[in-house]
Measured scan of single mutants.
Amino acid sequence: DELEKRVKKIARKLNLSLDQVEEWLKRNNNDELVEAVKRLKKK
């Protein structure tokens, strides 16, 4: 979905793993995208 695409884009842009992106999003209080990261990690 759109949020998952955004997460992947962030990960690529910042050259981070999904775990690192998740931490980064949590620090930025971006719950919506944190949920998207969790969905991606399950895939």
Rank of each mutant, 00 (worst) to 15 (best):
K8C: 15
W24K: 00
L3N: 09
K38E: 06
L25R: 00
K9T: 13
A36W: 06
D1Q: 10
V34C: 09
K13F: 14
D19F: 05
L25N: 00
K8H: 11
K5V: 12
L14R: 05
E4W: 10
K13W: 14
D31H: 14
K26C: 13
N28K: 11
E23L: 07
D31W: 15
D1G: 08
K26E: 06
K5C: 15
K9S: 13
E23Y: 09
L3K: 05
K13G: 06
K5I: 13
R39Q: 07
A11I: 13
A36D: 01
K43Q: 07
E23A: 11
V37S: 03
N15T: 04
Q20I: 04
R6G: 02
N28F: 13
L16G: 01
V37G: 01
L16D: 00
K26M: 11
E22M: 13
L33Y: 03
L14W: 11
L33H: 02
N30I: 15
S17M: 06
E22R: 06
D31N: 12
E22S: 04
K5T: 12
S17R: 06
K38Y: 02
N15H: 13
L14N: 03
K5S: 12
A36R: 03
E32Q: 10
K41E: 03
N15P: 00
K26A: 11
R27T: 09
N15I: 03
L14M: 10
R39V: 03
K9R: 14
K13E: 14
V21R: 00
N28H: 13
E22Y: 12
L33T: 02
A11Y: 03
K42H: 08
N28T: 13
E4S: 05
K42Q: 13
E32H: 09
W24N: 00
R39I: 04
V34R: 08
N28M: 14
K26P: 00
K42P: 02
I10F: 04
A36E: 02
R12H: 09
E22W: 12
R6Q: 14
K43H: 08
E2G: 07
K8P: 01
K8F: 11
K13S: 13
N30V: 12
V34I: 12
W24Q: 00
Q20C: 14
V7P: 00
E22F: 12
K38M: 04
N15E: 06
V37E: 01
N30W: 15
L18F: 07
E22I: 14
K8L: 15
K43W: 12
A11Q: 12
K5F: 12
E22C: 15
V21F: 08
E23N: 08
L18D: 02
K8W: 15
A36S: 03
A36C: 07
E2H: 09
N15D: 05
E2Y: 12
K42T: 09
L14Y: 15
E22T: 04
K43N: 06
D31E: 12
L33P: 01
L3H: 07
E23G: 05
E2S: 10
E2M: 11
K42Y: 06
K9E: 15
V7L: 09
A11L: 14
E23V: 07
K5H: 11
E2P: 10
N28S: 11
V34H: 05
K13Y: 13
V7T: 01
S17E: 04
E23R: 09
D1H: 11
A11N: 00
K41Q: 07
V34E: 08
K38A: 06
E4D: 03
N29G: 15
R6Y: 14
L40T: 02
V37K: 02
L14F: 13
E4I: 12
L25Q: 00
Q20D: 08
K9F: 13
E22N: 04
N28A: 12
E32W: 11
R39H: 04
K41D: 01
L33Q: 02
D19S: 09
E4Q: 05
D31K: 12
I10A: 03
L33E: 02
L3F: 11
L14I: 02
R12N: 07
K9P: 01
E2N: 08
I10K: 01
V34F: 08
A36N: 01
Q20T: 03
R27E: 10
R39Y: 02
E2L: 12
R6M: 15
E35D: 08
K38I: 11
R6D: 03
L18P: 04
K43D: 04
K8T: 11
N29I: 07
L3Q: 11
W24D: 00
K42S: 11
N29A: 13
K43Y: 10
K8N: 08
R27G: 08
V7D: 01
R6T: 12
W24I: 07
E23P: 00
E2T: 09
